[in-house]
């Protein structure tokens, strides 16, 4: 379980995030929506201990993220291109991550087979550095790398943006499949209301750092969200 208590993040006098309490149980696919400046990326950065909270705390499976680093073994994330190492090829990058998660290159090679349709022949065995790939392909590499070594928690910031339509559909399928089979809990932020309501069990809507709505995904969710954003 990821649990948040009395979490705030302030820059000067401006409060960019204020979450009194939030609990994300294991197995519940968690969706985060909101306009620019809502605090989605700030929240993810706080969960990953990349920025320091002004007050309050976050724990992952009972481990306080800013006190103890052992949550890193169970958690993976892809926020943006700064999570890629630009001068490595895709395989080298997967081996790099694999090495940190106790996977040999051979294991990684074998494991990668299942994603060949997702990569569509444009990523693997290319003898190209990641910085030379298109944005969409970079994103694919980043997302797949988070799945290496059976993490319990995977945080994805805008996973559908920049992907072509087929890849978006494949990614959706992949997420649904992985949470069934491997018990991975996803935290997904997205501007795409359709996609996020399709994959997630629960949608949290944020605005200017505050939690506005906390919805259980159902038939009416999409309409409710759409109504909110229309106004």
């Amino acid at each position: 379980m990821i649990s948040v208590t009395q979490l705030t993040k302030k820059y000067g006098s401006q409060c960019v995030l204020d979450l009194p309490s939030l609990e994300i149980p294991k197995g519940q696919c968690f969706g985060l929506v909101g306009n620019n400046g809502a605090g989605k990326t700030t929240f993810f950065s706080l969960v990953l201990d990349l920025i320091k909270a002004s007050s309050g705390s976050i724990t992952i499976d009972g481990i306080s993220v800013d006190r103890n680093e052992s949550w890193k073994k169970l958690t993976a994330a892809y926020i943006d291109e700064s999570f890629l190492i630009g001068y490595l090829s895709a395989e080298e990058y997967f081996y790099f991550v694999g090495r940190l998660r106790q996977q040999t290159p051979e294991q990684i090679d074998q494991w990668l087979h299942q994603f060949e349709p997702f990569f569509n022949g444009e990523v693997l065995k290319q003898k190209k550095y990641l910085r030379g790939l298109s944005k969409g392909n970079q994103k694919k590499v980043g997302i797949i790398a988070t799945l290496i070594g059976q993490p319990h928690w995977v945080l994805l910031d805008e996973p559908f943006a920049n992907l072509d339509p087929s890849s978006q559909i494949r990614l959706k399928k992949l997420i649904l499949e992985l949470r069934e089979k491997q018990d991975i809990t996803f935290l997904i932020s997205s501007h795409d209301l359709n996609h996020v309501t399709e994959v997630c069990d629960r949608i949290v809507l944020m605005e200017k750092g505050l939690l506005i709505k906390d919805l259980k995904a159902g038939d009416s969710t999409l309409k409710e969200l759409a109504d909110y954003f229309t106004n």
């Binding site: 890193k72 073994k73 993976a76 700064s82």
Partner: peptide
């Protein structure tokens, strides 16, 4: 890619 490194084990 320092952010990435800091999230890794």
């Amino acid at each position: 890619y320092y952010r990435f490194l800091m999230c890794q084990n």
